[in-house]
């Protein structure tokens, strides 16, 4: 029996869009301090899964417990309190085009921690920008940044609330291999520096290998297999092997 403390527990999660069943009695545990990777092909429902966890999508049935609270049952205010502890790195970065980097970083801070003074806000902005290696971009607009820089700023915006869990939605998609490697390194550094639990959704095997302590394979809407990278790679199951060939 696993004695580690789970921060996310998912049981029997089902989600369908019309007749298209995306998640079919899906189960998952994310433990404190763990880097868990959910691997699946495009369109397999990985993004739907983490959007259900953060409350952006409502599941059809099943339980999603985050810090012991069932997300689908929460009221808006309660969900906000959970969201303050759970960071979300969007696949498209989702930086606000009309705001500078500073304003992008200040936005969640001002919303969740309304009584934070300007001096403390400035310090936090500077600190997270240094964490992602981009302190000089503070007054730039997102359109002036490269793809990798935008990803770093998006991660900085996630980190500014010091979340206990970070959900990464395809963090290396659309990046060149070198920048992708830098982002993978950054994810590992962030986990060590901030001691977060991470749930990474991806189909990038390099990311799986380097960042994943445990891997769950999402196939046909179910948790089809789980284990370490090496266990998965040496699996004899044809559906699992198909990812590594």
């Amino acid at each position: 029996m696993d004695t580690r403390e789970p921060v996310i527990i998912i049981r029997d999660l089902c989600k369908a869009f019309g007749s298209n069943v995306v998640l079919d009695h899906f189960d998952l545990n994310l433990y404190r301090g763990e880097n868990l990777v959910v691997l699946g092909k495009s369109g397999s429902g990985k993004s739907v899964l983490i959007k259900c966890i953060i409350g952006l999508l409502r599941p059809d049935s099943g339980r999603i417990e985050v810090f012991g609270q069932n997300v689908p049952d929460l009221r808006y205010e309660e969900l906000d309190q959970i969201r303050a502890k759970v960071g979300f790195l969007f696949q498209s970065n989702a930086l606000y085009d009309s705001m500078t980097v500073r304003e992008n970083l200040e936005f969640p801070l001002r919303r969740h921690w309304m009584h934070t003074g300007q001096k403390q806000v400035d310090e936090l902005v500077q600190m997270v920008l240094e964490s992602v290696g981009l302190p000089h971009t503070v007054d730039m607009m997102p359109a002036e940044l490269s793809g990798g820089m935008r990803k770093r700023i998006a991660l900085a915006r996630t980190l500014i609330l010091k979340p206990a869990i970070i959900l990464y939605d395809e963090p290396t998609t659309g990046l060149d291999p070198i920048t992708g490697m830098e982002i993978i390194e950054l994810i590992r550094e962030v986990q060590q520096q901030y001691r977060t639990s991470s749930l990474v959704i991806t189909h990038d095997l390099k990311l799986v290998k380097l960042a994943g302590e445990r891997i769950i394979m999402l196939i046909d809407g179910k948790c089809y297999a789980q284990g370490t990278y090496d266990e998965m790679k040496t699996s004899t199951d044809p559906k699992v092997r198909a990812f590594f060939e």
Binding site: K51, I54, L56, D80, R83, A84, V86, F88, F90, Q91, S92, A94, L95, Y96, D97, F107, P108, R111, H112
Partner: peptide, 10 residues
């Protein structure tokens, strides 16, 4: 996804 980002930002 900026609208979603706004929602998770409280």
């Amino acid at each position: 996804e900026q609208i979603d980002a706004m929602e998770v930002s409280g």
